[in-house]
């Protein structure tokens, strides 16, 4: 790693103040940041350690939801009784990601801010518009098996790597932020952005912003939900395609549907039209396939990743089927 300074923040306000200087970065779990610093992809001049700020609680909210502290560890969140009971798809999603050691280190806020695992982003010998704006995209016309099929641009076809975020998108979570301008709430759908012509910017956070919590609304789709992750090996691999699915059922008919996909775009992918296409329909593979085709109507493959379009369709059908059949019980 390159040389950098280290300071521990005494409070959230102190952290935000210190982050105002150029070249500073927050560190909490460190699992992605230190990896990227070793790879020379990120070169902060100083780290502000926020890991000991009192933002690690999981608490009830006034409206019947749950507030996940930004510094609560992924493992503690996944194994929290309230999360497992009321938001099983979230627990499943977290436990589908990384390893036990990493989940013990990584924080919820950090998970939102992790960077893509695009090979070209990591390889400083290759062009990458996300790492070095204007240098080009190695993945377009290169090796692009793991890349985006939705929402990509001619500058970047990277995907967001998180599992947790896919479930948070499906659940309509809200990200609470404090920053130089004060506090604000960011609906999850607006937290991550598409690459467009600024692929170096992953989120709508401003410099100095600190994520303090992620709030879950009361509705957790606990009765009919699941998280399905398709990957190249059975464990400890990023998703080729993943699906967070939640249904509200009226007998055999879908009353409300939530559907979010991971591994297919620069952000967790939600499509209101696909969800609307499920409402009032019988919970059958035909209904689910029709909704999948709505969601994938603009999907575009590259040389090595076109298989993801078919894979996503089948994964959606399977996840919705499992959710309807109540197979999405949290793992022990």
């Amino acid at each position: 790693m390159r040389s950098f300074t280290y300071a521990r923040a005494g409070s959230a306000a102190d952290a935000v103040g210190r982050a105002g200087a150029t070249g500073m970065a927050f560190v909490a779990g460190g699992t992605n940041l230190l990896d990227l610093m070793k790879a020379d992809v990120l070169r902060p001049e100083g780290l502000v350690d926020i890991s000991r700020l009192p933002l690690d609680r999981i608490e009830e909210t006034a409206d019947g939801g749950l507030r996940l502290g930004a510094l609560a560890r992924n493992a503690d969140t996944a194994y929290d009784d309230r999360v497992q009971t009321r938001y099983p798809m979230l627990s499943m999603a977290i436990l589908a990601g990384a390893s036990a050691q990493l989940r013990n280190m990584a924080t919820n806020g950090g998970n939102l801010l992790q960077r893509t695992r695009c090979y070209y982003f990591y390889d400083t010998a290759t062009p990458c518009n996300k790492r070095e704006p204007g240098s080009g995209c190695g993945a377009i016309g290169g090796v692009n098996r793991i890349h985006a099929i939705l929402g990509a641009s001619d500058r970047c076809i990277a995907v967001h790597p998180s599992d947790l975020c896919v479930a948070l998108a499906a659940l309509d979570a809200v990200v609470q932020v404090t920053g130089p301008e004060g506090e604000r709430s960011i609906p999850f759908a607006e937290f991550h952005r598409l690459p467009g012509d600024r692929p170096e910017i992953d989120t709508t956070l401003q410099p100095g912003d600190l994520v303090t919590s992620i709030d879950l609304p009361a509705k957790g789709f606990a009765e009919h939900s699941t998280y399905l992750k398709i990957r190249d090996r059975a464990s400890y691999a990023f998703a080729l395609v993943s699906v967070a699915a939640g249904l509200e059922m009226d007998g055999g008919t879908v009353r409300e549907a939530r559907l979010a996909l991971g591994g297919v775009a620069h952000k967790p992918w939600r499509d209101p039209e696909a969800e609307a296409a499920l409402v009032g329909k019988p919970a059958t593979p035909d209904s689910f396939r029709a909704a999948a085709r709505v969601l994938l109507r603009d999907a575009k493959g590259h040389e090595h990743n076109s298989f993801k379009i078919d894979l996503a369709e089948r994964a959606i059908v399977r996840a919705l089927t499992d959710a309807a059949e109540r197979k999405g019980a949290p793992r022990p």
């Binding site: 280290y6 230190l34 050691q101 013990n104 280190m105």
Partner: peptide, 21 residues
């Protein structure tokens, strides 16, 4: 995982955390 140690009883990767942290 070759660097796995226990910190306050929990297993972590010692390579991805700073000693100062």
């Amino acid at each position: 995982g070759a660097c796995t140690v226990l910190v306050d009883g929990r297993r972590i990767n010692a390579c991805l955390t700073l000693a100062a942290m």
